[in-house]
């Protein structure tokens, strides 16, 4: 199993970093979202540091969702998806590996950029670490849940917005526990570990449900 999985992983990673790929656009979008917020709420640094974790999480959520619409569509448009269905590999695993490659190319850069953006929001070092850690654990869940939306909208020309509308409600639990874990790290009396472990659990659940649901959607789509 490992050879084909590795081949698929490498291919998807290459496609997203080469010319025409969109690996770093997500980070740029993340930066743009974080830059825009202070224009809306005002430049008060105390306020920004209080809502900073939430801003970073919402920015990461939007950046992840907007990058997902081509996850399966690019393969459908040139006929690759048909061949993947016939390749004799479990489609659920194929989806999981594609999500993993997509996360490494687009989600991981968001996590790496988070501490830098946290400076703009005047976050304390502890809060910075907490947000980065929760993003590291939580963004895979966003990618995996988003994959369901990407699979459902694979045949639509303008699926991007619909994808976001479909996926946002499903992603709310991740957002809640991500932000509350990060907040807990800043305000002492609240325990950090409880929401953080729930966040880990959500990611693991998404790693099961996401690929199964996406694979089912892709199979129906090919009919």
């Amino acid at each position: 199993m490992s050879t084909w999985a590795l081949a698929l992983f490498q291919r998807d990673l290459r496609l997203s970093v080469r010319v025409g790929g969109s690996a770093l656009v997500g980070v740029l979008f993340f930066l743009a979202v974080v830059t825009v917020i202070p224009f809306g709420v005002g430049p008060d640094l105390n306020l920004l540091s209080r809502i900073g974790p939430a801003i970073l999480w919402i920015g990461a959520l939007l950046a992840t969702l907007l990058g997902l619409d081509r996850l399966f569509q690019a393969d459908r448009d040139d006929g690759t998806l048909d061949l993947m269905l016939m390749a004799g590999r479990p489609l659920e695993l194929v989806v999981l590996i594609k999500c993993l490659a997509h996360w490494v190319a687009t989600g991981l850069p968001l996590v790496v950029a988070a501490p830098l953006l946290a400076i703009f929001l005047n976050l304390e070092p502890a809060a910075m670490g907490a947000v980065t850690l929760t993003l590291l654990v939580g963004t895979p869940a966003l990618t995996l849940i988003g994959a369901i939306g990407a699979a459902l909208t694979v045949s639509l020309r303008r699926g991007g917005l619909l994808l976001a509308v479909l996926v946002v409600p499903l992603a709310i639990p991740v957002l809640i526990f991500g932000v509350s874990a990060a907040d807990a790290a800043i305000h002492d009396p609240v325990p950090f570990l409880t929401p953080f472990l729930i966040l880990c659990a959500l990611s693991l659940i998404a790693a099961v449900i996401g690929p199964i649901a996406s694979a089912a959607a892709l199979r129906f789509e090919s009919d």
């Binding site: 830059t35 202070p38 640094l45 400076i119 703009f120 005047n122």
Partner: peptide, 10 residues
Amino acid sequence: TYWVWDARLT
């Protein structure tokens, strides 16, 4: 502070 949202910096 490392960063403020003033006009020049922004």
